[in-house]
Design a protein around this nucleic acid. Structure first.
Lengths: 234, 234
DNA sequence: CGATGACTTGACTTCGCTCAAAGACAGTGG
DNA sequence: CCACTGTCTTTGAGCGAAGTCAAGTCATCG
């Protein structure tokens, strides 16, 4: 598979005027170089990749699996900042510490890159650095989009937007529809809703014939028109 | 003043273990170099610096003044992604187009940096590129924080958090308290509230003796204890 | 097959939104 | 200097949607 050639990161470039879709940012030789610098790690479902507050000595590139990046607030609430998939990066730091906790939702394998080694590589290859800059800019746009999603009042619209994200990120859509790897509770923490509100919104979308949930971990779009209307109703 | 030495950008570094506060990212020689590459521009209150969707041929570093970066949604609602101050950067792009509109809230002066010129400079000076990477990472953290703010249910807490941001960013606090350069409506668009909710929350904070609003564009913290409690109640 | 975690549903409360109207402020031109 | 005018702000009343609490049901795994 693609991962055998080394770490891969994907983003929509800020500048390139040709093609606005997701593209591979790294050249084959850059991936080869990064692979030689990286160590691979495996994580089982639910295991923590790094904890908020721990010394941030590495960044991670996901080779396989799904990860949630979250912060637990003093109130006991949990806010999920992002769901991360293969070819995404994680390990956002501030003053030498991770700001979020990263936890595996499915079995996960990652490339672990030591930050000082990476900084050294940037010094030698400014083109490589530009690719990472591009990826971070991409994540910044995603974070702004996340803010727009959670400021939407209607729970149905928020749920639809999440499913839209999953649909776009999915490698392939099976006959059962889009896979939903995370729990309803995770979705609630991501969308800034209560668990019950997520359930009720899902049911409403189903009742309205816009979506079907064949099982808890799959969703299928039945009425594309109204689905898109919800997403762009922001 | 500081601006006479050329553009300046400020951020909390991701990695440096010493000092977690905002620091100047650019060396004097880097600022000098950027100044030679940049053109200065002035904008009056309310004028648009760039429009969402326009070709993104430059990024901007704010020398003086306050800017709002926003997106108008199909519903007619406006979402402000960020308020930007002196030493902040703007000009986030996707596929060669600006994703947000930037508009001056006060009289503003900016350094305009052509992106291809800047990319060229990155190729020659990978250390400079690292500083910009650091700034973008900083903005990413800010965007995540913004998401946390807007997912808080209580309007009073959201307003308190905005005032906290203004307080931290303020150059100096006058005797009237923290300056609030933007309108209530801007605050509402940033916090994901209605204009009325912002007003009512402000009044409630005033009635509870936590804050005072000597005039519409200043706020003073009266009860620091309860103010901090609100902010960390997330 | 029992236990644990995930999900679903209902009843009630709360908070912010909408609509509507009035009050304060700043810049402009007489 | 002051009235004028549009913008910005404040306040009120009623409604609706999500939150909370509580009581289940489903499924997954030992």
């Amino acid at each position: 598979v693609a991962t055998s050639r080394g770490p891969s990161i994907r983003a929509i470039p800020s500048l390139s005027f040709s093609g606005v879709g997701l593209v591979e940012l790294l050249s084959d030789s850059q991936r080869e170089m990064l692979r030689s610098m990286a160590t691979m790690q495996q994580f089982t479902r639910r295991s923590v990749i790094f904890k908020a507050g721990a010394p941030a000595d590495a960044i991670f590139i996901i080779a396989e699996g799904v990860v949630k990046s979250y912060r637990d607030l003093p109130s006991g609430r949990r806010r999920i900042a992002a769901f991360l998939f293969a070819r995404d990066m994680c390990g956002l730091a501030k003053g030498g510490q991770y700001v979020n906790t990263a936890q595996a939702i499915t079995p996960v394998s990652v490339y672990r890159l030591n930050v000082s080694t990476l900084a050294e590589a940037f010094r030698r290859d400014s083109e490589l650095e530009l690719r990472f800059l591009c990826k971070v800019v991409h994540e910044l746009r995603e974070a702004q989009h996340h803010t727009i999603i959670v400021t939407h009042r209607r729970a149905t619209a928020r749920v639809a937007m999440l499913l839209h994200m999953l649909e776009r990120g999915a490698e392939q859509t099976g006959d059962a529809g889009v896979p939903i790897p995370m729990t309803r509770s995770d979705i609630a923490d991501y969308l800034g809703l209560s668990l019950e509100a997520v359930v009720r919104a899902s049911r409403r979308l189903e009742r309205q014939g816009i979506l079907a949930f064949p099982d808890r971990h799959h969703a299928k779009v039945l009425d594309r028109q109204r689905f898109d209307a919800l997403i762009h109703s922001s």
